[in-house]
């Protein structure tokens, strides 16, 4: 009995140390949000209780070229529209790829996989040329279009795997009853896909929220900006204004942490559904 307790203590100690390593960077990010710049550079780990300040957050709430609420609104709009369109287009695509695995559809499956293997930076220049030729460069529409295309392989990949676990007999019996394939998919299959849809929602939300290169290049110097690109407004080539960097970081992180704590159960199950069935 004693031995068991000791090992449990040892295990918890080990886990606490590891958890500490995981949380220290967050501690740094959060505590420095509330410190004046000299204190950030001088004693980044310290908590100067008398000198904690909200100045950084207030100053960056509405900087001349960066308004946090506007950035939140715009990022949220991007996420919601991207998600709606990704799910509406990727899920039927995944259904077809899962049920018809021959000929062109098999090739299409591999073509989609290819898209999961390249870093987006590598094809940024061709993407810019394509968007430019259809007049969608520097527009919100262009950004959404690239996001949908970019997330398509991932969404299809995990959804295809998931649909594979749904019995084919469901489709067949419905078809015998005279339902069309489109009806079968939207009425019967899609409602069964909730766990995997949640998983796609989680990933796409995280990735879109945290992405900075795509919006920076595609939106250009326009009036739209996302929260994460805001960080780059505080970082010049020669200067890093740490008080601004941490404040904007704070603004960028907090919604995702709230999102996570709120949907924690779904996060874990969604994540698992996505990876185990894929």
């Amino acid at each position: 009995m004693r031995k068991v307790q000791l090992s449990a203590i040892g295990r918890n100690m080990l886990l606490l140390v590891v958890a500490g390593i995981y949380l220290i960077p967050f501690y740094i990010a959060v505590i420095n949000t509330f410190k004046p710049e000299p204190a950030i550079i001088g004693r980044p780990l310290g908590i100067p209780i008398g000198r904690l300040t909200l100045d950084n957050l207030i100053r960056n709430l509405n900087a001349p070229n960066f308004n946090v609420l506007r950035a939140y609104g715009f990022t949220l709009l991007t996420v919601v529209i991207t998600l709606t369109l990704v799910i509406l287009t990727a899920s039927p695509l995944a259904y077809v790829l899962s049920r018809f695995r021959r000929g062109f559809y098999k090739t299409a499956h591999y073509l989609l996989l290819a898209g999961m293997m390249i870093p987006i930076q590598v094809i940024m220049i061709p993407i810019i040329q394509i968007l430019k030729s259809v007049g969608m460069m520097l527009s919100f529409q262009g950004l959404i279009l690239v996001y949908i295309a970019w997330y398509m392989p991932f969404a299809t990949f995990v959804m295809t795997g998931y649909i594979g676990t749904i019995s084919k007999q469901l489709d067949e019996s419905a078809m015998i009853d005279g339902a069309s394939l489109v009806t079968v998919f939207f009425r019967i299959i899609l409602p069964l896909m909730t766990p995997i849809v949640v998983s796609v929602i989680i990933f796409v939300t995280l990735w879109t929220w945290n992405d900075f290169i795509t919006p920076l290049i595609i939106l250009g110097s326009g009036t739209f900006y996302t929260v994460t690109t805001g960080i780059y407004r505080a970082i010049g080539h020669y200067t890093q204004k740490w008080d601004d960097v941490f404040a904007i970081l704070f603004y960028a992180i907090v919604p995702m942490i709230v999102f996570f704590l709120w949907l924690q159960k779904h996060f874990i199950s969604g994540l698992t559904a996505g990876s185990l069935k894929g």
């Binding site: 930076q121 940024m124 810019i128 430019k132 920076l216 290049i217 250009g220 110097s221």
Partner: peptide, 17 residues
């Protein structure tokens, strides 16, 4: 943005865009 060197990289991207 994009990993280049400051202003030159920026203008190249803007030209492409």
């Amino acid at each position: 943005a994009g990993g280049g060197e400051g202003a030159v990289d920026f203008i190249r991207n803007r030209l492409a865009a």
